[in-house]
Computed example of a mutant assay.
Amino acid sequence: MTKAGDSVSASTKGKKTGADEVILGPTGRPYQGFPTPKPLDSHGPARIIALCNQKGGVGKTTTTINLAASLAGYGRRVLAIDFDPQGALSAGLGIQTHDVETIYDLLLDTKRNPREVIVETRVEGLDILPANIDLSAAEVHLVNEVARETILARVLRKVASDYDVILIDCQPSLGLLTVNALTAAHGVLIPLECEFFALRGVALLVETIDKVRDRLNPAIELDGVLATMYDPRTLHSREVLERVVEAFGDDVLETVIGRTVKFPDASVSGMPITEFAPEHAAAQAYLRLARELVARGAVA
């Protein structure tokens, strides 16, 4: 794992200020390494983070997998929730979801013990609540339930003491499942592809988060906006990242995830990139993201 003072990526640039040199990261702010998190003396209760963006293909699942594995690598106990009927998170961690109990079963019967459905992954310290296509029927079944927006929160309350962080991989929509995730969460992480059309929809997502805060979950916070699929060689990527920083300021995380073919290769193998190609720049970026979130206080 990369330690504090990790090497500066090729996308950073130097700016002379007298005799000193300030290294600027892709976001235009001074680059800083984040310290390696200290081991925890005990575990729990978990801080719940929803990874949310109603646009698909922006890196939510990739980020959930690799952030979860990175945090587990730093000694945190992590539970990943696959909350997308496509089941990509489960597949990306090599979990079989055919003819098994899933998060859908827990939503329909909140009296059940979630520990009976949680599956251990091959990554030490990382467990998952899997999902499959059955979850697509959840909104129909839940629409007439009392306090239907809080059902996931009631499920996770039973296992929160077992983990340090719970990451929810939301589906690309702003429907009832996503509202459940936002109601259960303490914080929201928004993966945002460095592409113009991805930027357009963020205002609607922020509006939804504000409505959930106002009506259902006053404690929810924006933990950060994570720029993904960044290509420093293209003017378009650089301009979009500049606009994101202008719009969100310090809420934009300093860590930026670059575009690489290693991500789909790792997904096919059912492994996080931190295990599939640990020395690759993308793996180091997710380790840095884990350290940044710990440094920001979003994770213990």
Rank of each mutant, 00 (worst) to 15 (best):
F83Q: 02
S7R: 12
V143F: 00
S90H: 09
E124M: 02
V22Y: 00
V159W: 07
L142H: 07
K13Q: 15
L222Q: 08
F34M: 13
G59W: 06
N180T: 03
H236T: 14
S136P: 03
G56L: 00
Q86K: 06
V261E: 11
L67Y: 09
E246W: 01
R148W: 06
K262V: 15
V165I: 10
G44F: 12
F83T: 01
L192Q: 07
D82K: 01
D164I: 01
N144M: 08
F83S: 08
S11K: 07
N113C: 03
R148M: 02
S42Q: 14
R238D: 03
S173P: 00
R112E: 05
A46M: 00
D231F: 05
N180Q: 07
A19F: 12
R122N: 13
I48H: 00
P45F: 06
I65R: 09
H141M: 14
R238P: 00
T102A: 08
A198R: 04
F276N: 11
G258L: 09
A203W: 00
D20K: 12
R29Q: 11
N132V: 03
A4M: 04
P278A: 12
R291L: 09
S161D: 14
L287D: 14
R259T: 12
T150Y: 08
L79D: 11
N132I: 02
V245I: 11
D164P: 06
I81C: 14
A4T: 10
V146L: 15
D251W: 01
K15I: 13
L199A: 13
A298T: 09
L167V: 06
R77L: 12
D214Y: 05
G56S: 06
A281K: 15
V202G: 02
I23M: 14
Y104F: 15
V256D: 10
G258N: 04
A137Y: 05
V179K: 01
L189C: 06
A290V: 08
R215M: 10
G94Y: 10
E292W: 06
D6V: 10
P39K: 04
P37E: 03
S173A: 15
L289A: 08
D251L: 14
I209H: 08
E246R: 14
R154S: 13
D169M: 07
R47C: 04
G92L: 05
S9H: 10
A19T: 14
Q284C: 13
D82P: 09
P172V: 03
K16H: 03
A137L: 11
V261K: 08
T110E: 14
D214S: 13
P85G: 02
R47Q: 09
D250H: 09
G249T: 05
L174W: 00
L152G: 06
A72D: 09
S11T: 11
L293Q: 09
Q171K: 04
L174V: 02
V261Y: 00
G94N: 13
A69D: 09
V155C: 13
Y230L: 05
C52T: 14
S9T: 06
V268D: 09
V202D: 04
D6C: 07
L126Y: 01
I133T: 08
A91Q: 15
P172G: 03
V268S: 14
K55S: 09
Y163V: 01
A198P: 03
N113S: 12
L253N: 07
P191S: 10
L176G: 01
T64F: 10
T102K: 12
G297T: 04
L177T: 04
T260H: 10
V240P: 12
T63M: 07
L142I: 06
K211L: 14
L167P: 11
G75V: 05
